[in-house]
Design a protein around this nucleic acid. Structure first.
Length: 553
RNA sequence: UGCCCCGUGGUGCAGCGGUAGCACAGCGGACUUUGAAUCCGCUGACCUAGGUUCGAGUCCUAGCGGGGCAGCCA
């Protein structure tokens, strides 16, 4: 058990007290119960880190259980991606991999017990009628005319449901509780519906499937879960969760709810996320603009940064919207310490050093990571013709512009001081196509022996000794902080969320297969090589996150 | 005109009856061969009203505000 001075959230507090009181007679058992109908996103990560984290901290166990009770929406593809993402985050369910569908026989038996006890009945009404009879938020519902069927009749009908003797929608099994309850979940909730579609795991064995409310708690119970942690929208379901377990007289886990995550400038509902994919607003579930774990991974987020983020936001019951900057901070914090530095020019502008020899290449020593001396140094080729960032030259510099401009002297990082002497424009477009300068040979490495200062330091690459790269620059997927509050979230999609830069110039060292995938391009940000793109002749980089920039570019 | 939950700086989190702290963001400064990082500083909050108490952000009540719930989704 790790001891820290970190404040303990209310759920860990409960677990701690239960442990002290030996409430469960053993270690805590939690579970992460995704439905395999989509990819995991950053919001799921908070739940994963909570459940697996608590288990790890207390010597308990966290189960992975797929809540696969609706074969019409679920798919093995999602099961695979979910397992990959959890493992990528660094958690392990060990041998505790389960599926709600593993319990279909037991769940059926539970239903039979409720029927025998007069606590459940088969209803012949259609969905529409049931909905109307359920009443409204402010008015109680009315009893179904089939509510008082005898247990024997119900047993027989339920078995026929199971045997496929009825059509979809023709009958459902309902709990017999209280149609006038203020809690809508108590108004005779549906327990089983007929679904004549094959299940990805049980195949054609069943044509009736349990609803969430009937499957979830009992599955928790079967697995001896101690703390069943879920999100706030299930708060109203807890009395029902407790009701089933009490009626069935089985192991009673404690359901605890916490607030789900919202992030500014993004959406985190599976429905909207899959809409973005289906309607081609993004390239797929793992598009680097997506808040999915696979998207974030492709973007260059590390598992550690995601965990750090989850730690920073804490756990509570208040609906929360976290600022995207906190997620970015979590990434930069880690990458600052680990990512090798490299120079890369996104929008190349040729810089010619007129007084530098034409046939010379010097190799200048550059620090790989100023935060970590053990990462050493590298040699960067320096020649007469270089590329600098187009933004780093200004014909008519604004106030406080610290970069290159006519007559100004700047330092080329790890190189020399250079002074701009002239520039060439395209007579047609007026675009600046080349900048000329002279260098001071005594400033090699970037130090002036006379101690004179220079206003700025800019990055560069050797024009004839660099690699071309495609770089994808990402901005938020939405133009407003809370796209969920728009009438149609598709109308606030950011048309400029992706910018493809095709002729970036980067130090050749990024080609080194042993160099890792994420680099800091100095002064620009962190960029991650796309490893699925290895076959292309030009490397592809995703901008993971920019550097913090107090200068309004 | 039902039931449930939640109200602490801009955003989050802590404070467990003894007079508010942390992170991110913002602003300013130091340092700087990344306008980064690092360091220092500043701005800025207990929803309201009663009550209990020597003492309330913390306990009670009411009000106000916010959120969730009317799938044969989870």
């Amino acid at each position: 058990m790790t001891q820290t001075n970190e404040p303990v959230d209310f759920i860990r507090e409960i677990v701690k007290q239960d442990l002290a009181a030996n409430k469960w007679g053993g270690s805590p058992i939690t579970r992460f119960p995704p439905e395999p109908n989509g990819f995991l996103h950053i919001g799921h990560a908070t739940s994963i880190c909570l459940n697996f984290g608590i288990a790890e901290e207390t010597g308990g166990q966290c189960h992975l259980r797929f809540d696969d009770t609706n074969p019409t929406k679920e798919d093995q593809r999602y099961v695979d991606s979910i397992m990959r993402d959890i493992e990528w985050l660094g958690w392990s369910w060990n041998e505790h991999l389960y599926y709600a569908s593993d319990y279909f026989d037991q769940l059926y038996e539970f239903a039979v017990r409720l029927i025998r006890d007069g606590k459940a009945y088969v209803d012949d009404q259609n969905a529409e009628t049931i909905r109307i009879d359920r009443g409204t938020l402010t008015q109680g519902g009315s009893d179904s005319p089939y509510r008082d069927r005898s247990p024997d009749e119900n047993l027989e009908l339920f078995e026929k449901m199971k045997n496929g003797e009825f059509q979809e929608g023709e009958k459902v099994l309902r709990a017999r509780i209280d149609m006038s309850s203020g809690n809508l979940n108590f108004r005779d909730p549906v327990l089983y519906r007929i679904l004549k579609s094959d299940h990805q795991r049980t195949l054609g064995k069943w044509c009736i499937y349990p609803m969430y409310d009937f499957a979830h708690g009992q599955s928790d119970s079967i697995e001896n879960i101690t703390h069943s942690i879920c999100t706030l929208e299930f708060e109203d379901h807890r009395p029902l969760y407790d009701w089933f377990i009490k009626e069935l007289n089985i192991h009673h886990p404690q359901q605890i709810e916490f607030a789900r995550l919202n992030l500014t400038y993004t959406v985190l509902s599976k429905r909207k996320l899959s809409q973005l994919v289906d309607e081609k607003f993004v390239e797929g579930w793992d598009d680097p603009r997506m808040p999915t774990l696979s998207g974030l991974r492709k973007r260059g987020f590390t598992a550690e940064s995601i965990k750090e983020f989850c730690r920073l936001i804490g756990v509570s019951k208040r609906p929360k919207t976290i600022e995207l900057s906190l997620l970015e901070h979590s990434l930069r914090k880690g990458l600052n310490l680990t990512a090798p530095r490299v120079m890369g020019v996104l929008r190349p502008l040729k810089l010619v050093i007129d007084n530098y020899p034409t046939d010379t290449t010097e190799y200048l020593e550059a620090t790989n990571n100023p935060e970590d001396e053990s990462m050493g140094t590298r040699l960067v080729p320096f020649e007469r013709e270089l590329y600098i960032e187009r933004d780093d030259f200004s014909e008519d510099p604004p106030a406080k512009f610290n970069r290159l401009a006519p007559g100004r002297e700047v330092r080329l990082r790890y190189g020399y001081f250079v002074t701009c002497t002239s520039f060439v424009t395209n007579p047609e477009s007026g675009e600046i196509i080349e900048v000329h300068c002279t260098y001071d040979p005594t400033t090699k490495g970037g130090y002036a022996p006379d101690g004179r200062k220079v206003r700025g330091t800019i990055h560069w690459v050797s024009a004839n000794n660099c690699v071309d790269a495609e770089v994808r620059l990402y901005d938020t997927l939405f133009t407003v902080e809370k796209p969920d509050e728009s009438d149609d979230f598709r109308e606030v999609i950011n048309p400029n969320s992706l910018e493809v830069v095709r002729n970036a110039k980067v130090e050749t060292i990024v080609l080194d297969p042993n160099g890792g995938n994420t680099y800091q391009f100095e002064r620009l940000g962190y960029f991650t090589k796309d490893t699925e793109n290895e076959s292309e002749e030009v490397p592809l980089f995703h901008r993971s996150v920019t550097l913090r920039d107090t200068w309004a570019r």
